[in-house]
Structures are given as structure tokens and as C-alpha cells.
């Protein structure tokens, strides 16, 4: 399947200048500026097949927003080539906007003081959606997103979660092939987050909408995305499956053991010298960390169970937070982590 998004060496350079200090410095700035270039996005290449749900992550200032802006056609790339659904997002902006839906978590595309349904109607006119299609989609969307009760309310009376549901529906009324979501669950409570996640999964699965999801919520990425692209300092430092990245060397599993009696901290520390680190959490509870490639989980469990009476035991895979932190650290050393998934 050929990619719906194809980026090659996409780069965005902002021109900036050093501000000199003080009043005299400002005056000098007026006459002569000491310009330098900042690469916000530094040669990213990406191929996204149709129907994928891609997690796009990175710390603040990594270039996420800049690349999303280029992908949605509102920012002109400095160099590199890009093609999305057969269009060049920037050059063909007007035609291209009909193919995409965009939701910014912190902005709304709805009119503030009028009923949600009025905004929907206007959007359907803007996108030339036929009445029959509009009715069908609205019915469908309000069922999944439970909008029925909200449609008659003005946006200002909606809670953040309700507003986000309406915004999601608004971005899908013209049935876009691609959906760009920038922090769609920012500030939402757990229940609201959950319903939005379910919804995204459903439209991706049922309608084959390609979704590019930017978020800081790594749990969300973990639950939704098969593939992640990690950005740091304008470069892609990881592109591949989530499962693979979790098997990356250097990541640690954690273990929590509740003993029937007193926790044998010293004994276990000596036994697994250098391969696992343990610490005491309470009198009967030990917590430890170990790297799977150095120490198989089975060995830990067997050893502990053979020697002591254990009330309970849990092993946790490396968390995605850990994975990301490690990726950033490795990325900072200049190596791109190979991901071929």
C-alpha cells in the first residue's frame, strides 16, 4: 500500500536574531540584526500508509507543532518534499483542506455563543456537504459521541470534554481522509479521555481514517497507536512499532514482591549482585528493577519462590515514559534508534 503521507527531508528553518542587551542594544538591533537560523524541523522523512493511527510525540520544542503545521498546509516548508493524499499541503492549500480534519486541543472551531448544531450546519456548507450526507454523518457521530443533548447548547456552556467531543464531530463532518489531532485530550478527566480514545479507535477501524495524533499523554499513545514517531530537536529519533521499542536494550522491568515474613533485602541483593537492584518499601515488601536481557524474569521468580514464602508478586514491563526518556537520552547522543516495524 502506498503511503498517504510522504515526507522527504522536510525542513523548516526560522530566521531569528540575537537581541542585544539594554537600550543602546535595542537601538543597534534596529539598525543591524545579528541573524541566525533555527531549524525547528530538521530533515524529517516519513511514510505513513493509509488507515494508520500514528502517534507523534516529542518534548516541547521538538518540532511537533511545526511539522503538524506543515502537514496541514498552514506553514511553508523551507526545503524537502512532501505529498499528502496526492496534494502538496501548502501549495494546494485550498483544495487540500477539504481532505483533512484538524483538531487543536486548545482551540475550538465552533462559534462560541451559538448552538453547536449551527456551527455544524455552517461547516457543512463550507465543505459542500450534501444535506443527506450531513444528516447521516451527524446521526452517526452523535450516536458514538453522545452529542444529542449538546447540539442545542452554545459552546460556552459546554464542559471541556463535551466541547472536545463536539470539535471532533465538527472535524469529521466532511468525512476527511486524514485527521490531525493536536493534544485532543489535554485537560480532560479520565472518563472523557476514555470516551475520546474509544471514538478514535472506532473511526480509525470502521472508516479507515488515517489519524496523526500528537499528545503528551503517553498512556494514550500506548492504547491507541501501533506505530510511534518520536521527535527531538527537529529530528526523528525513533520511528517504529511500540512493541519493538519496548524491547530496546537498557530498559528495565520492575518487580514488587510481598513476602509472608520479613523481606530478605540483603539476601536477594547479594544473589542478584549487579543484575538487579532491590530496595525495601515496607517491612514485608521489596521493590526491584532489572534489565530483561541481563536477567530473565523467570529466573527471578523461580529463585525468590524457591527460597521464601511469597504472598504476592507483580512484574511490570518498562513504562512508555521510561522508553521515551531513554529515547531522548540516546537521541541526544546523536544516534537514531533503528525501528523497522
Amino acid at each position: 500500500m502506498s503511503g498517504i503521507i510522504k515526507l522527504e527531508e522536510l525542513t523548516k528553518t526560522y530566521r531569528s536574531f540575537n537581541r542585544r542587551e539594554g537600550v543602546w542594544g535595542s537601538v543597534k538591533d534596529l539598525l543591524h540584526r545579528d541573524y541566525f537560523d533555527v531549524k525547528a524541523v530538521d530533515g524529517i522523512s516519513l511514510d505513513v500508509p493509509e488507515g494508520e493511527l500514528l502517534g507523534y510525540i516529542g518534548p516541547n520544542g521538538a518540532g511537533k507543532s511545526t511539522s503538524i503545521k506543515m502537514l496541514t498546509g498552514i506553514l511553508k516548508p523551507s526545503s524537502g518534499s512532501m505529498q499528502v493524499n496526492g496534494y502538496h499541503p501548502f501549495r494546494d492549500r485550498k483544495a487540500y483542506t477539504r481532505q483533512i480534519g484538524v483538531v487543536f486541543g486548545q482551540r475550538t472551531q465552533l462559534w462560541w455563543d451559538i448552538a453547536v448544531i449551527e456551527s455544524f450546519r455552517l461547516l457543512s456548507k463550507i465543505y459542500d456537504v450534501r444535506q443527506v450526507d450531513f444528516d447521516a454523518r451527524l446521526k452517526n457521530l452523535s450516536e458514538i459521541l453522545e452529542l444529542e443533548a449538546l447540539l442545542r447548547l452554545p459552546v460556552r456552556k459546554l464542559s471541556l470534554g463535551q466541547r472536545m467531543r463536539c470539535d471532533l464531530a465538527a472535524s469529521l463532518l466532511h468525512n476527511p481522509k486524514l485527521l490531525f489531532l493536536d493534544e485532543p485530550t489535554i485537560g480532560l478527566d479520565a472518563v472523557a479521555k476514555d470516551s475520546i480514545r474509544d471514538f478514535l479507535r472506532a473511526i480509525n477501524r470502521d472508516f479507515g481514517t488515517t489519524i496523526i495524533l500528537t499528545t503528551h499523554d503517553l498512556k494514550e499513545i500506548e492504547e491507541l497507536c501501533q506505530r510511534i514517531v518520536v521527535l527531538d530537536k527537529g529530528k526523528i529519533i525513533y520511528d517504529g512499532s511500540l512493541v519493538k521499542v519496548k524491547a530496546m536494550p537498557g530498559l528495565k522491568r520492575s518487580i514488587v514482591i510481598d513476602f509472608a515474613g520479613k523481606a530478605p533485602l540483603e539476601e536477594l541483593s547479594t544473589l542478584f549482585q549487579g543484575r538487579a537492584q532491590f530496595s525495601l518499601q515496607s517491612e514485608r515488601r521489596l521493590v526491584g528493577e532489572f534489565a530483561p536481557e541481563q536477567l530473565p524474569a523467570a529466573e527471578v521468580v523461580r529463585t525468590v519462590l524457591d527460597r521464601h514464602e511469597v504472598a504476592d508478586l507483580t512484574i511490570t514491563e518498562p513504562s512508555i515514559e521510561q522508553v521515551i526518556v531513554k529515547l531522548y537520552r540516546d537521541g541526544a547522543n546523536g544516534s537514531r534508534v533503528a525501528g523497522n516495524g
Binding site: D133, A136, N140, I203
Partner: peptide
Amino acid sequence: MAKASTGPMSVQAAD
């Protein structure tokens, strides 16, 4: 102009 989209949510691309 919009290409024909195949999403089940759509009926047809706008005329």
C-alpha cells in the same frame, strides 16, 4: 476538487 472518498460514513463526495 474532492476525490471520491470511500469512508462508510460518506455517501458520496460533494458534487
